[in-house]
Design a protein around this nucleic acid. Structure first.
Lengths: 337, 337
DNA sequence: TTTATTTACGTAAACGTTTACGAAAATGTA
DNA sequence: TACATTTTCGTAAACGTTTACGTAAATAAA
């Protein structure tokens, strides 16, 4: 920000006006080939980089998008960021990242700031506390396109990229039932979350189709601490009517099950079967290898970004929203054999 | 960016000048309490958000930092981002994220753009192709503070946050030797990387201290594909003089070893011992549980950010750089028992 | 009372671009 | 030659802030 060269510098050195230099660098038809060459050469020589803030102020676009995530510890969001970044790069956009840490207050504060025009568009995966979407609607009404991915807010009218959560919940239950489970417990962290609800509904439907009863007590709401969650799982497993199957609806709930079983002399998959929603490569090398439902995280991030750029490109009157669903895949492995 | 309210709007509605409104919102001493109240009230009512680009242009600061990473697939960088974001948030800064995908060309292009003043400071973990740091030095000379974290470029004079890679390489070798290994193979991806070299040097020193010979052929340079790497590891394990210990110097090289051993009827840790550099929680539930060297990823990100803000705060003449080392910890588990 | 000081605000320039408008020079047309 | 058109560039306003400077009114000091 010190000795940076500006249009003025180039203009002075060449005896041209600022306007001409600006147009030359934009390859405007109004500028002769000769001066274009002179200008671009000197610009390269002086290492000219246009001031993005001046440009944004004048053009009223920022060439920047925001990605609002609950957290990035999960492998899903890591991969999603990769997808988003890869398409942002080829579009010449910059990516601001914000973490809500599952707090609605923060989410509101972050979004509210966007009314300033800092970003041209927003990709968001809502926090677990986000029930009502008024703060998101405000942003859309301010003319800033929003695309949901993974964790959507259905009451808000916007484009979204999701995976087949309901179907996956159903398939998870059916798979376990098919492998002989009679009592399947469902581990989750935030049952209020829309996506969590969908998976759970699918799970219930799967149970129904398999002719298994649904019991409210088989839904285990876990916390964030590993030891706490392990204790929870162990408690369940000590019951006389213990479950013989688990669905870990989020990645980090896999560990407690693998940890608790040996402690209670229970073996996977003979005594207890387990299926997890996860993208971890380590699923391959667990023993037994973990049956997973893996989400197309990279693809979801990338297509969400593409959807956002589409609505940025046309800048057409809002209202035209797309809803894309990219299927997750169930990969059966040893943990449910 | 449409119906956003500006200072002008507020000024007109209150019959004040733009300057007065601006100063009132900044709680300037030159403004009476009465008008301050009027202004702030109306600002809140109209949901006024100052245009960050106008502000940045005028003040010549962006309140934004850049984080330049090789990739974000690794759990290390995910955690680091969390650390960075948490301190950026409390400082009121915005975080732009860029991925180089281990390409020097991209890294150069990204950094070059920063001469424009888009960001006030930069956190960077260099790509594996980055040997020469001239492009980074250019940025520093342009007056933009840079802080390295994890993957540093020693020839560039800047603050840095690293972990004790050399020591960890040494401890890894010593630990395996102590557990009875006679031939320890070292798996890596990019031996040219500074941090990789340090670990490897430590590994050699560890071998020396343990009285084991170093063999060039025990250094296995892996690629990015899992199947390719598995084939590599299997090939080594088929040799008559096969290694009885492995050091996986990066997270993703763990999988090939766990995958290959059972295929060759070799068991961990009896036939082959393994130690990995990783932050994965899944280390706990591998079987046997994986001995790890875990890096203080969150802390490294956070302190790197704090260092950056320190040099932003004082804006003192460059030259005063800090080098912080945060130790990783070796956690012995079943894979080296 | 007069003068000095403080308080509270306005004017205008500046940050570095982009772009509507205008105008001189060069070229074409009659 | 006289006029129309095109080419090529400059002038100046604008984007929304921040801030140096000026100034009128209010207060204090003499």
């Amino acid at each position: 920000m010190k000795g940076t060269t500006t249009l003025k510098d180039i203009a002075q050195r060449l005896g041209l006006s600022i306007a001409t230099v600006s147009r030359a660098l934009q390859d405007s038809y109004e500028i002769s080939a000769a001066t274009k060459k002179k200008v671009t050469q000197l610009a390269k020589e002086l290492n000219y980089q246009p001031n993005p803030y001046a440009s944004s102020l004048r053009r009223r676009v920022s060439k920047t998008i925001a990605v609002v995530l609950p957290e990035v510890a999960d492998s899903f969001f890591s991969l999603a960021i990769n997808g988003i970044e890869s398409v942002a790069l080829e579009k010449g956009y910059h990516v601001l990242i914000y973490l809500t840490h599952e707090s609605l207050i923060r989410e509101k504060a972050i979004l509210s700031e966007f009314k300033s025009g800092r970003v041209d568009g927003i990709l968001i995966s809502v926090s677990e506390e986000t029930a009502n979407g008024s703060h998101i609607r405000e942003i859309i009404e301010a003319g800033i396109p929003v695309v949901f991915f993974d964790r959507v807010c259905d009451e808000v009218d916007a484009s979204q990229v999701v995976t087949n959560d309901y179907e996956c919940g159903r398939l998870a239950a059916l798979h376990l039932a098919q492998q002989g489970c009679k009592r399947i417990s469902y581990l989750c962290t935030s049952p209020a979350l829309h996506i969590s609800k969908k998976r759970m509904d699918g799970y219930r439907e799967g149970l129904r189709e398999a002719g298994l009863p649904f019991r409210e007590t088989d839904i285990i709401v876990c916390g964030s601490s590993l030891t706490e969650n392990s204790r929870l799982v162990e408690k369940i497993l000590r019951k006389k009517n213990r479950p013989d199957g688990f669905i870990a609806s989020v990645e980090k709930l896999t560990t407690p099950v693998y940890l608790s079983c040996p402690r209670l002399k229970l073996t996977i998959p003979d005594d207890v079967k387990l299926l997890s929603f996860t993208n971890l490569q380590a699923a391959l090398i667990l023993s037994p290898p973990l049956t997973t439902i893996t989400q197309p995280a990279f693809e979801m991030g990338a297509t969400a970004a593409r959807l956002l750029f589409k609505s940025l490109d046309k800048k057409k009157r809002l209202g035209y929203n797309e809803r894309v669903m990219i299927n997750s895949v169930l990969i059966p492995r040893g943990s449910t054999q």
